[in-house]
Design a protein around this nucleic acid. Structure first.
Lengths: 221, 221
DNA sequence: GCAAATTAATGATTTATTCAAG
DNA sequence: CTTGAATAAATCATTAATTTGC
């Protein structure tokens, strides 16, 4: 099926905004609330929209003329391809997941990423997404199973499912979540509160390139 | 407000995992699906879990001894509070929103953050979240209004608030992008984000190669 | 056997909900 | 109550599997 690729480019609408005087109606004199430590310009910066609108350098479509670096078809994500995990990486991630990890915090992601990086190119966001997706998909898979089971009241022997818990129950602490199947209705916040103190979505620094992040939770430990 | 902080420490569950032989049972021979051609390190790193679990230097609780370096630029978040936007910041954000911006990409967020930073402490995530929330809430407000109108053909009565929207809804334009409320956005933008906060790293946009999309924020001193 | 065409998986993005600070 | 922050659900989009026609 053709994907169609609409390429709408709704962008660019506001970038040519002409005058934007910002202060048009509201904007009061702005008492410098507290001086941002840095040499707060005594005069309030005029907020020049143009200065940060920047046309964005074009969309970089896939079929573009020059790429084709596909030749190496390697793991070094050529240009814009998505992460393609190796078996080792998946293995480790699954192990961690089975171990109970569901939403690694920034620090954990950083470390996991570092480790997985030994097996192939990877970035923090990939790890983050992996957990998000895996968690969600395990959940829906289980839900589907439950429905199936309910529908046909068979399975006296607990055969399937519960696989996980049974396998790793050995750990005393259980899976720290008991949300094995809670349909997210359960307030996860209450009990995880402490544990995800510095939970933030993270992003990792790769080489010189500093990455950025927007994070969640300033938390400042 | 008593925070209470239960400090459950659900953490540490997987970190003391003893053996983790990774390949123990599952891990099939792994038919090299395609060999991935990756220059697989001849010797696969053994994946030493311990190496990245790192005792984590202790939980670093809030009341720890050394914190408090917050003294500098006390400006806003003293420590763990959430972003508290100034009027100027809100003004600009709303202007941008009215201008049609709905989901700024990384680059835009970066620039906006930089600008807004002149009016008070702010981080990229705040901008990100602001747009997310504002968009969602405008939408639900509108939906509510529509329902309200349908349901009871009375004048909306201005029950309470709705201050903003009612007063300035419908600026002349505001449609532009046509993405007013398309069920879903067209598609992606690549998130290239670079850091700029902390004003220690500079940010140079290097094409749109890697992007990182989320964040973390180390707040290293 | 092999590629083009389809389908199945799953990585990545956006929207909807929810929690909780102020 | 308002709204910043965070998580979960929905869904878009791309890659690998698999099927199919030759």
């Amino acid at each position: 099926m053709g994907s169609m690729k609409v390429h709408q480019f709704a962008r660019g609408f506001w970038e040519h905004e002409p005058s934007l005087t910002l202060g048009c109606k509201r904007l009061r004199p702005l008492a410098p609330k507290l001086s941002n430590t840095d040499n707060t310009p005594t005069t309030v910066p005029p907020f020049d929209l143009k200065s940060f609108i920047r046309p964005e350098s074009g969309p970089r479509k896939l079929g573009s003329s020059d790429d084709k670096r596909e030749t190496a078809h390697v793991d070094t994500h050529p240009g814009g391809t998505r992460w393609n995990p190796t078996q080792e990486q998946i293995g480790i991630l699954e192990m961690l997941y089975r171990g109970g990890m569901r939403t690694p915090n920034a620090q954990q992601i950083e470390q996991i990423t570092a480790q997985l990086g030994k097996y192939g190119k990877i970035e923090g966001k990939n790890v983050f997404y992996w957990f998000q997706n895996h968690k969600a998909r395990e959940r829906q898979k289980q839900k589907r199973n439950n429905l199936g089971l309910n529908h046909s009241p068979r399975a006296p022997g607990v055969t399937t499912t519960t696989t996980i818990s049974s396998s790793l129950t050995h750990e005393s602490r259980g899976d720290f979540g008991r949300e094995e199947d809670s349909p997210y209705k359960r307030k996860c916040r209450s009990w995880t509160f402490e544990c995800l103190e510095e939970d933030k979505r993270y992003c990792r620094n790769e080489g010189d390139r500093t990455l950025e992040l927007f994070p969640l939770h300033p938390e400042n430990r």
